[in-house]
Nucleic acid binder design. Structure first.
Lengths: 254, 254
DNA sequence: CGGATGCTACGGCCGTCGCCGTAGCGTTCC
DNA sequence: GGAACGCTACGGCGACGGCCGTAGCATCCG
């Protein structure tokens, strides 16, 4: 039986990538790598719930698909996501995993700590990331740029006051600041290497601390004071204070 | 052998969704539905290159995974994507499908017409979508809002001059305007129901025409004149004039 | 009302792939 | 140098799932 099939050209490539992410073990590994850190094969095997031999095979496939990178150090092999685009794609899938048929959020599937503050690959997301984004936007510290956002003069001063040089990485091709949509809040936060540098600085100075075994992070009291002083209008709401508005349903179709 | 496995809670859900997209036939179907139109099961079977019985099974699985919706009309069943989030997730995967190991774009995999102008679910993407976004942003017609962007007074006037009511859909929960990252250009364009209404208006008035069998669209001469008159600073470059800057490599990691 | 059309339900075939066994290589520590 | 460790390569087992056959139900047409 000949169907004279059409077979779009984009489809197969899309299927290759999705197939790599479609295995539970590999999905667990990728999810664990989404905070941007590098993990060893053994750690990833434990996370995925499979034997090291099985994990090794999965990691080889993810390497071949250019989804992860490896850094060899002695007898350890550290795996990490191949780039921010991989984290973005995974976030897009997570949005779907947290919706039911009517377009409502399924609040039970995502922890409260994660929507409060977490890392998104290499920058901040959750209400912490949104708070930074909104304060900069409302204060007129962001302007349109070809890659996303550019800092105005006042915006650069804010970054300098936090100990960062906003022009240091200007020659890089990767956008310094760009919007990144949040899967738990459906609002944009800041991505790009300047956002990554800010996150790095916050960890260094003890303004934000990682929680172990989770992508959730905690804004310390000192960190709150520093950000509120540097960023007029910055707020990072406690989970309870805004949850009522976030619980409201979102329409599924236009 | 007990591994005392960790097994993250998010991983399995992520894998379910990715597994649905990871089959070539289903990926072709979803890709075909990305322009927001509704297609019959038979059309989708032909696109996927499988028999109608097989397609029926695939569509049932996609329904169960809440990736598509169905509208029954007589003896026909029209399938469409379940929502904008599905299109966004697919776009995220396409970014990865168009990168090689070094982070370079693979220009051969995406047609020139598609990066010039195309639909992204229900709004414009490609250089057409970016041109609209940049002109509004540069002119100060966009302001920060909780869901993404809000129109300033001058921005509302522009939409009214094009025959749209920017306040008509204000009560809806879905964001009116929000940034959406483009997988071919890596720059944001406008999504949200106001962007969808604009696209709809452009098709109605003959300013933009669909090409058959493709998500690529054409900006007509009249459409160019209308947009340039309504949007000061609007440009929609010809493919050749900017291709040199777009061919430059993009660094893979920060 | 009989036939054609659009679609779905079920069953059997078969390829793909995830899984862990053993085995082997390189590194680190004592 | 020997033992432990981290990781990968290969082989066989088993199951999930895609594929199309036939069959059945609903709808539109003459």
């Amino acid at each position: 039986m000949t169907h004279h099939a059409c077979m779009s050209t984009q489809g197969p490539y899309l299927a290759e990538i999705a197939h790599l992410m479609g295995d539970p073990a590999r999905a667990n590994m990728l999810h664990a790598l989404m905070d941007g850190r590098a993990l060893t094969a053994k750690e990833l095997a434990w996370i995925a719930g499979v034997a090291p031999q099985t994990a090794s095979g999965h990691l080889a496939k993810l390497m071949q698909g250019n989804l992860i990178d490896v850094a060899v150090q002695g007898r350890h092999r550290y795996y990490r996501l191949a780039g921010p685009e991989v984290a973005t794609a995974l976030e897009g899938l997570m949005v779907l995993a947290n919706l039911d048929g009517t377009g409502r959020r399924l609040p039970s599937r995502v922890g409260a700590e994660l929507s409060e503050a977490r890392t998104c690959y290499d920058h901040f997301a959750g209400r912490l990331g949104i708070g930074i984004h909104d304060a900069l936007m409302a204060g007129g510290h962001l302007a349109a740029s070809e890659g996303g956002y550019a800092l105005t003069g006042s915006g650069k001063a804010i970054f300098r006051s936090l100990g960062l040089d906003p022009d240091a990485t200007a020659r890089s091709r990767r956008a310094a600041l760009r919007p990144c949509l949040d899967w738990s809040e459906r609002r944009p936060h800041l991505a790009g290497h300047l956002a990554a540098a800010l996150a790095c600085r916050c960890f260094e100075m003890g303004w934000v601390r990682r929680r172990k075994d989770s992508r959730a992070v905690t804004l310390t009291e000192e960190g709150r004071e520093v950000l509120e002083a540097a960023l007029p209008g910055f707020r990072c709401d406690a989970p309870g204070s805004v949850s009522s508005s976030l619980r409201e349903p979102v329409p599924a179709l236009a």
